[in-house]
Design a protein around this nucleic acid. Structure first.
Length: 846
RNA sequence: GCGGCGGUGGCGGAACGGUAGACGCGAGGCCCUCAAAAGGCCUUGUCCGCAAGGGCGUGUGGGUUCGACUCCCACCCGCCGCACCA
């Protein structure tokens, strides 16, 4: 027999050509008639069965679209290997799967690269996209290429602009001057989410400054409550939901008004502890509060306040956020009146109060808040206990006290009440007096979307001296991004230099006007791309509603956990806002989410600067795409981080080679024929029975593992099956071997499509992707005998063969007489016998 | 500080409260070969023992249970997110 060699470099391109030529993975949207005939907008997942295109449920499997930069890395390989396994499995379970691909093509790296090298962002981006597309083909990912687009193409971004205008109409896009975070190196404004805890730009790592600028915002805060509540209705990992909940940061409390009588100004404050209102002994404002300087004007502290504010504002978040730093602040020389008791309490400015949370001013209750306590001790402000703790005697004992207890020193009406009870009563009382009301505060800020950058989606707005801010009309879209020569940021968008482009006429009055020169945050582009895939070639609308209804929500979304907050929150916000405009029928974009872990090497994140990166292309060239894909899934649970090992890759390659070689050998020596079926469960015996059992066990196991994303154990199960094939290759019948190998190829196909398609074709002459997912036969999953585990006092002492249908008594007896059990019972009294049929018997002896 | 996740052989990792260590890597041995590569077969938690078998073993300490990697309580360590959020 001729020696056969597993040659992925021959096998893989051959099958890729078939899939490309036949457009195998493309799915069309259903026609109105088809949808009507089906009596639904979309299907629900059905039981696996024959593939019948007319009644298959529609399924949307999506991986996060890549940002095309250079070449795809191992993280992409893992992301798309996971998604493709899901897509293939669901197809063969009888679903009609849309599995599209696109590119998140606008963004700072391409622009920074342009500044450095002079290569136009458009050119560099296109080169990267071509490289990504080539690799995705080479990996054999089953993509519907008919729906491909890049977010930088006018045919896409005209609809991004269209959505901007819809948001503007609804008051969800607005312009305001705000203290914004500004990156001095990238020369651009950043969203809160793009600044890390140390106050550094997430892109270039340099210190962020504060600037006052007019900027565009999206009113995501209007959706805070729904973004929070609807997390309960989606199948997402708990840690991602937790991150979103933390980011939204909902706090329940009350807004209470303190009045500064000297200047006759009311200051509302937000507090989560209205029950401690009677313990408020001072009042603090954030250094950024617009009234601080005005309040201090004319007092003895004016100079001091000026200096303090100037210093505080230039401090970075890192310096200011340091918890160990002693509290600082300056008196304002003014007082406010505590509305519950009429007391005048002093005002301070201090940097531990943040302008961006609540109202930028707080009532301070040192007895029951650690920060207020620290400040009061540092500044000698009185501390008044208003909730009795465990040791109610000593006033100064156990302060600050943040626990529960009865109110004291408050007001006869409330003293003695449990503080939780008092909370509600005080809020009700404030409400009646018109001094406050129950209130909810969120940490979430509105989304700042303006960027003083070139390589982004232009904002479809013009400024007219007469009409002010004028939105363009739909038929003026797209506002195309002009070509320019100089991308260097100069504190304004590089677009401002394209004078011919900037100068336009006002759509309202026809007078000369100027275009908005900022572009949109690239997160805007990726907040709706999943909708566009549903109807990617529509030239008349962003999408046809029926098409979106057919596919949305995405059944399975897959991507990196690094997008847990930003992208995944923005996409949810867009979906809700568009649903509110009656443009969509879903309120959540991603019904189910899977977040894959990172692949590291030597324990560290792969990066070219560390020199530990593995290029997927080098693995594909050496071992083939099937090996590369299988390996990243075999390495460990896909939601956890995993460390790359070159030896591990070779192991997987050996496994695929073994599968292919034995398949080729069996196919050659025993060509498939109609009447050559493997024996049934009642006729099989010996090695045939063992192998058939193993095959059906693997079929059952891999299906279950795929459903729960346990790809590593699924691949291990096929390895076990293949090991059994080799073990009995000379004893088992050809039909049995062919069945076992076909089954292996069939269930491994979602992970290693090329080699499995090839092996399956050799063995059966059929295309495995056109064959339904196999079903395990119950009769082979059961057996007449099994190995009973015999324990004495919970310790394994022996194993004996028993009949599957043995009675409990028979099982106990089998255990009692097992030689090594007898040795351990050894005359002692058996006080209890635990029987777990199918598993074990445990004898408890004394 | 708050929240989440994790801690199992030399390594990556398996294990509905029921045989701990599947599968793979690495290591050792054998076969094939003139030889090597490739491939095939076997062994491999640890200690004692020629063996049969036994002791010990899932971060630590308790608990529940006939039986705990798994459940409960209290800790230790590591990673991730948020963090002076009133």
């Amino acid at each position: 027999m001729a020696e056969r060699r597993y040659d992925p470099q021959e096998i893989e391109p051959r099958w890729q050509a078939v899939w490309a030529d036949e457009h195998t993975w493309e799915v069309a949207n259903r026609t109105a008639e088809q949808l009507k005939a089906l009596g639904r907008g979309r299907g629900t997942a059905g039981a696996p069965g024959r593939l019948t295109p007319d009644t298959e449920p529609d399924t949307y499997v999506l991986e996060m679209l890549p940002y095309p930069s250079g070449e795809p890395h191992v993280g992409h390989l893992k992301n798309y290997a996971v998604g493709d396994a899901v897509a293939h499995f669901r197809r063969r379970c009888g679903e009609r799967v849309m599995h599209p691909m696109g590119y998140d093509a606008f963004g700072l790296p391409a622009e920074n690269n342009a500044i450095k090298t002079g290569v136009q962002p458009r050119v560099a981006t296109q080169a990267s996209i071509d490289s990504y597309r080539r690799q995705f083909h080479r990996w054999g990912i089953s993509i519907d290429w008919s729906r491909e687009f890049g977010t930088h193409e006018p045919r896409y971004y005209r609809w991004t602009q269209w959505i901007f205008l819809r948001l503007y109409e609804r008051g969800l896009a607005y312009r305001k001057e705000a203290a914004v975070k500004w990156c001095p190196k990238d020369q651009t404004v950043l969203a809160n989410e793009q600044v890390d805890a140390e106050g550094r730009c997430e892109r270039c790592g340099c210190r962020v400054e504060i600037r006052q600028l007019e900027q565009w915002f999206f009113r995501i805060t209007d959706y805070a409550e729904r973004l929070l509540n609807d997390l309960d209705n989606i199948d997402w990992p708990e840690h991602v939901k937790t991150m979103q909940r933390n980011w939204i940061g909902r706090s329940e409390g009350a807004e209470v008004t303190f009045r500064c009588e000297e200047l006759a100004i009311d200051y509302p404050v937000f507090t989560t502890r209205p029950d401690t209102l009677f313990g408020a002994t001072f009042f603090v404002m954030a250094p950024e509060h617009p009234d601080v300087l005005r309040l201090a004007a004319g007092t003895d502290h004016e100079q001091q306040v000026h200096e303090y504010v100037n210093h505080a504002i230039t401090e970075t978040g890192e310096e200011r956020g340091d918890l160990d730093k002693p509290k600082t602040g300056v008196p304002l020389g003014r007082t406010v009146v505590n509305p519950v008791n009429g007391e005048r309490i002093p005002m301070y400015v201090a940097d531990y109060v943040l302008m961006e949370y609540g109202t930028g001013a707080i009532m301070a209750v040192p007895a029951h808040d650690e920060r207020d306590y620290a400040f009061a001790r540092a500044f000698g402000v009185p501390i008044r206990r208003v909730i009795a703790g465990e040791n109610p005697d000593g006033d100064e004992q156990g302060l600050p006290y943040t626990g529960d207890g009865p109110l004291v020193n408050s007001n006869p009406e409330f003293d003695g009440l449990d503080n939780r009870r008092a909370y509600a009563e005080i809020v009700a009382w404030l409400d009646r007096q018109g001094l406050g009301h129950g209130s909810i505060s969120y940490r979430l800020r509105d989304w700042l979307v303006s960027r003083q950058r070139y390589w982004g989606c232009p904002i479809p707005i013009v400024y007219c001296d007469r009409c002010g801010i004028v939105p363009l009309s739909e038929d003026e879209l797209p506002v195309e991004l002009p070509d320019i020569d100089d991308y260097t940021p100069k504190g304004r968008s590089p677009l401002a230099a394209a004078e011919d482009w900037v100068r336009t006429t006002c759509p309202g009055c026809g007078e000369p006007a100027r275009r908005e020169t900022d572009t949109m945050d690239t997160f805007v582009d990726s907040s709706w791309y999943f909708l566009r895939y549903c109807d990617a070639r529509n030239e008349h609308a962003a999408w046809d509603r029926a098409a979106v209804r057919e596919w949305m929500p995405v059944n399975q979304y897959i991507g990196g956990v690094e997008h847990a907050i930003l992208h995944l929150m923005y996409a949810r916000f867009f979906t809700k806002a568009l649903a509110d405009m009656d443009l969509l029928d879903v309120e959540e974009p991603f019904a189910s989410l899977f977040t894959q872990g990172m692949i590291t090497r030597g324990g560290a994140k792969m990066s070219s600067s560390k020199g530990n990166a593995v290029a997927p292309s080098s693995i594909v060239e050496r071992f083939g795409a099937d090996t590369a894909r299988c390996y990243v899934l075999f390495i460990g649970p896909p939601d956890q981080d995993a460390d790359w090992s070159d030896e591990g890759v070779e192991g997987v390659h050996r496994f695929l080679g073994r599968l292919w070689r034995l398949s080729a050998e069996v196919a050659e020596r025993a060509p498939a024929s109609e009447d050559d079926r493997p024996p049934g469960a009642d006729e099989a015996h010996g090695p045939d029975l063992a192998l058939l059992r193993k095959a059906h066990w693997a079929i059952d196991k891999v299906g279950g593992d795929l459903r729960r994303f346990a790809f590593n154990t699924a691949i291990a199960a096929v390895m076990e099956l293949l090991n059994e094939c080799y073990r009995v290759r000379d004893q088992a019948g050809d039909a049995t071997l062919r069945f076992a190998l076909s089954s292996a190829a069939s269930i491994l196909f979602p992970f290693a499509p090329h080699v499995c398609a090839d092996a399956y074709q050799l063995l059966n002459g059929e295309r495995v992707w056109e064959v339904p997912w196999p079903q395990a036969e119950e009769a082979f999953l059961e057996s007449d005998f099994y190995e009973l585990v015999c324990q004495v006092n919970g310790k394994l002492r022996d194993r004996v063969q028993v009949a599957t249908d043995a009675s409990l008594e028979e099982l106990k007896e089998s255990c009692r007489v097992a030689p090594n059990v007898r040795a351990h019972v050894d005359g002692r009294e058996i006080v209890k016998e635990i029987v777990v049929p199918g598993k074990l018997v445990n004898l408890v002896v004394r």
